[in-house]
Amino acid sequence: MSVAFTFPGQGSQAVGMGKELADAFPEAAAVFAEVDEALGENLSTLMFEGPESHLTLTANAQPALMAVSMAVMRVLEARGFSLSQHASYVAGHSLGEYSALCAAGALSIVDTARLLRIRGNAMQSAVPVGEGAMAAIIGLEHTDVQAICDEAFVHGTCQIANDNGGGQLVISGAKPAVERAARIATEKGAKRALMLSVSAPFHSALMAPAAEAMREALAQVEMKAPVVPLIANVRAAPVTDPKEITGLLVEQVTGQVRWRETVEWFAANDVTTLYEIGSGRVLSGLARRIDKSVTGTAVNTPSEIESALAALLG
């Protein structure tokens, strides 16, 4: 039985994120200062004080979530934790994949912050506002939702963006196609088909310009082999080769986040505990719904850090 570290994606941000960590731990405050310097702005002030409308902007939320995850990691490491000794794998949900790679030593904090700022801006600008959309489909299986996307494709791009497990899938694409797919899903018995308040159709083919932007940006940074394998979003399988990881990060921009399959892979490979490192506890909740043999444990407060250390270090 082994442990994996997971890292949250967009939607887990909240005003005040990281402040308790910065106040309690100098290692955490140092991470926030390093990210601020890398971006040339006081992102930490926005994280701690808001306004929420600015924090939720994709270009801000992505590096902010990474910063909190890495703050937790640095606090754990300063107290004797070693990812290579005490965990077997890492994985992250969408942008969380960058946090996972940073935690595993594949990317520096500075490079990760800058990459996520580029990624956020590129994803936001890839599609004119109002032309794309996303919707959450609750209560249907993957094959059913895929068939619905295929049916709606006559109205434009429509595909599964996130398979979050527990009967929760998110679709993405051209607004007319996604709206049509949501109506079809309701007709076919979905418990809910909810249009999401998002600024762009993430993880769809419409993000191709952003994928190219990330291909160029990733070519400019050093990617090392992670100290433990990454379970990649678009593959739901382990990968360690830096060149392969870089290609998968590009593919991820337009590809499906296969989170259900990722947790199922953990369960099938004797991983019983997933520590969710950073803001929120979304991934811990998803883990319980996907496979009850896997325990999700959120680690983002001083008390949760102490509990995690006690469990991990014995």
Results as ranks from 00 to 15, higher is better:
V3A: 06
F5R: 04
T6N: 03
G9I: 05
Q10D: 04
S12R: 03
S12W: 08
K19N: 10
A28H: 14
D36F: 11
E37A: 15
A38F: 11
N42W: 02
S53L: 11
H54L: 14
T56N: 10
A61Y: 05
V68W: 04
S69E: 11
V75F: 01
L76R: 10
A78F: 06
G80A: 04
L83N: 10
A87L: 07
S94A: 12
E97G: 01
A106S: 12
L107K: 03
D111S: 13
A113T: 08
A122L: 05
V127E: 02
V127S: 05
M134T: 06
I137F: 08
I138P: 00
L140M: 12
T143M: 08
D144Q: 15
C149Y: 07
E151A: 15
V154H: 12
H155N: 13
G156W: 01
D163P: 07
N164G: 00
G167E: 04
Q168R: 14
V170K: 00
I171F: 10
G173Y: 10
K175M: 05
K175F: 05
P176W: 04
V178N: 02
E179I: 14
A190K: 08
R192V: 12
L194P: 00
V198L: 01
A200T: 15
A210D: 02
A213H: 04
R215S: 07
E216H: 14
L218V: 10
L218H: 09
V227Q: 12
V228F: 08
N233P: 09
N233H: 11
A237K: 14
V239Y: 09
E244G: 03
I245L: 12
L248E: 04
V250F: 11
V250N: 00
T254R: 13
V257H: 01
W259E: 03
T262V: 00
T262S: 12
W265K: 02
N269W: 11
D270V: 02
L274W: 08
E276H: 10
I277C: 12
G280N: 11
L283M: 09
I290Y: 10
S293Y: 04
S303T: 14
S303D: 15
S307D: 15
L313D: 07
